[in-house]
C-alpha cells in the first residue's frame, strides 16, 4: 500500500504505524466529561465498509501523524492530511 504523504509524497505503508479511527482526535475534556463520555470516545467505533478516516504515524519518516482516508473495501486511499491540520480544523488547540 502507498500512502500519499502531504509533505513527502508517495511513501510505502511499511514506513507507517497504524493507530485507528481518526475520531480519536475528538478527545473529550477530562475535567468536564465523565466516564460515560470517555468510554464512548475510547471504545465505540463505526466499522464502515467503505471510506474510513484513520490515524497513521510516519514512524520511519518525518514523525508526522496523518489522517488517511481509505476505502476499507478496496484499500484505495482517497486522501492523506496532516493530523495537526485536521485537529485544528476540528477546534483543538491546547
Amino acid at each position: 500500500m502507498i500512502i500519499p504523504h502531504p509533505i513527502l509524497g508517495p511513501r510505502d505503508a511499511q514506513e507507517f504505524v497504524y493507530l485507528g479511527d481518526a475520531s480519536l482526535i475528538d478527545r473529550p475534556d477530562g475535567m468536564t466529561a465523565g466516564i460515560e463520555v470517555f468510554h464512548d470516545y475510547l471504545y465505540n467505533r463505526d466499522n464502515p465498509a467503505g471510506l474510513h478516516r484513520e490515524l497513521w504515524y510516519h514512524e520511519q519518516g518525518d514523525r508526522s501523524w496523518l489522517v488517511v482516508t481509505r476505502d476499507t473495501v478496496t484499500h484505495e486511499i482517497v486522501s492523506a492530511e496532516l493530523a495537526r491540520d485536521v485537529a485544528r480544523a476540528r477546534g483543538r488547540s491546547k
Binding site: R63, R84, A87, R92, S93
Partner: peptide, 12 residues
C-alpha cells in the same frame, strides 16, 4: 508523545 502533541493538543 508525538500523538498527544500533534493530534490532541496541536497548538501546544
Amino acid at each position: 508523545l508525538e500523538y498527544c502533541r500533534q493530534v490532541l493538543w496541536p497548538d501546544m
